[in-house]
Design a protein around this nucleic acid. Structure first.
Lengths: 205, 205
DNA sequence: TTATATATGTTAGCAGTGTCAACATTAAAT
DNA sequence: ATTTAATGTTGACACTGCTAACATATATAA
C-alpha cells in the first residue's frame, strides 16, 4: 500500500496513451512523457510494455472497440439497408473524429496484428459484426459476401483517407485549412448517396 | 571543383531518400543516415531541407509523379471504361508495390501539402488527369463528376489500405505472413470485378 | 509466521535522433 | 578583385527508445 508501487499503472498508461495519441498523434507520444504523466520513473512503463509498438497496439485495441461501438451494428436484429448505410456513415464519422487513433489502427505503426492477440481479437470482432450484418441483406454465398463486404469496407475506409487528405474544389485538390471535420462536412451531404449507390450496386447484383 | 562542395547534393539526397524510404519505410530514415550515404557531414542536408518533413515531402512528390506514370492515363485519347478499370488496377498495383512511399503520399507524415508547392502541384496533376479521364465517360455535370470521381478514388485508395492490412479468410481477418503483394494476389483475381461493379454503378446512374 | 520468489519500480547510462549556432570554404555577383 | 551568397563542417543541446543493475513491495510456500 506504499506508493512505491503504483497499483494500476498499466491501465493508467493505456488511458493516458489513448488520450495523448488522439490529441497529438502517435508520433508525438514518448514512453518518457507517458511515464511522467503517470508520475512514475522513465522506465517503469517497460515493466508493462516490452516496446513502444506494444503501447501503440494497446491504443489500437481500444480503438477497434470504440469503432465497433460507434458503428453499433446490432447482430441480433435483422439488418436493413438503411442500417448498413448508417453504419457506414458512423464508420466514416469515427475515422474523421478519431483520426489519430484511426492511423494507429490502419497504419503501419503496428506491424503485425498477430503479435498482439488482444488487438487481433478486437479487430476481428469489428470485422465479423460488419460482415455478419451485411450477410443478412443478401442470399449470396459466403465467398460473394466476403467479396462484397471487402468492397464496401474499402469504400468507407478509402473515404476516410481521402476526405482527410483533401478538399475537392473544382479542378484542384486543396488541403483543408480548417481541419478534417469541416472538410468532411463538405462531403457529408452527399455521403449517404455515395454509400447508397455502392450498396445498391452490391446487393442488387 | 574541389570536393568541399558536393555539387549535386540535393538531387542525390532525394534519390537516396526515395530508395531508403521505399526499402525500409520512412520511419527508418534519418537525416544523418542520408548524409552518411551521400558521404557528407551530418548537417549538410539542412542546407537543402529545412526539416525532415521537407525530405518526406520531396519523396512524396516523386511518388505522385510515379503514380501518374503508373496509371498512365492518356488525357488526349478518349477514355473507355476498360481503360478506367485498368487505371484503377494500376493504381492499386502501385500502392501495393510501393507501399512505403504510398504511406508518405497519403499518410500524416507530411502535414499540409500547401506548405510544399511542388508536392501540391504533383498531387494535383495526378488527380486532374484521373478526373479528366473520368469525365469523358459520362455527360454528368462537373459537380456530379467530382462526386463520382471521389467515390471511385476512395474505392481504390481504400482497397490498397485494406488489402495491405488483412487477409480475409473465412470469418477472420489475418495478417499476411507472406507480405502484401501475395495478399493482393488473393484479391487480384476479383479486383477487376470490384472496379467494374463500382464503375458500372457510377456511370449508369 | 517466516522465507523465498516474483512482480513492479528506480537509477544510471548508451547509442541514436532532429535541430541549431558558429565557423569554413567555394561559387556567384558586383 | 572584392564582396556576397550558397554550401559544407564542427560541436553541441535536448530528446528519444531501450537495457542492465539494483531496490522494494507483494504473492507464494515452507
Amino acid at each position: 500500500m506504499n506508493n512505491y508501487h503504483h497499483g494500476n499503472l498499466k491501465e493508467e498508461l493505456i488511458e493516458c496513451a489513448c488520450k495523448l495519441c488522439e490529441r497529438s498523434g502517435y508520433t508525438k507520444l514518448s514512453i518518457r512523457s507517458l511515464a511522467k504523466e503517470s508520475g512514475v520513473s522513465q522506465t517503469a512503463p517497460y515493466r508493462h510494455f516490452k516496446t513502444k509498438e506494444c503501447v501503440y497496439a494497446a491504443v489500437a485495441t481500444v480503438g477497434f472497440k470504440k469503432l465497433s461501438e460507434a458503428c453499433n451494428i446490432d447482430v441480433e436484429k435483422k439488418a436493413t439497408k438503411k442500417q448498413l448505410v448508417k453504419a457506414g456513415y458512423r464508420y466514416i464519422e469515427f475515422g474523421l473524429q478519431n483520426a489519430n487513433t484511426y492511423d494507429l489502427m490502419f497504419g503501419t505503426a503496428v506491424g503485425n496484428f498477430a503479435d498482439y492477440p488482444d488487438l487481433l481479437e478486437s479487430a476481428n470482432k469489428t470485422y465479423d459484426s460488419f460482415r455478419s450484418s451485411f450477410s443478412k441483406l443478401t442470399n449470396d454465398s459466403e465467398d460473394i459476401i466476403a467479396f462484397k463486404c471487402l468492397t464496401l469496407w474499402s469504400m468507407v475506409h478509402g473515404l476516410v483517407g481521402i476526405i482527410r487528405k483533401v478538399h475537392v474544389v473544382g479542378d484542384d485538390l486543396k488541403n483543408p485549412s480548417d481541419g478534417p471535420i469541416s472538410s468532411a462536412r463538405m462531403v457529408a451531404d452527399n455521403l449517404e448517396q455515395h454509400l447508397d449507390m455502392v450498396i445498391n450496386g452490391l446487393i442488387s447484383n
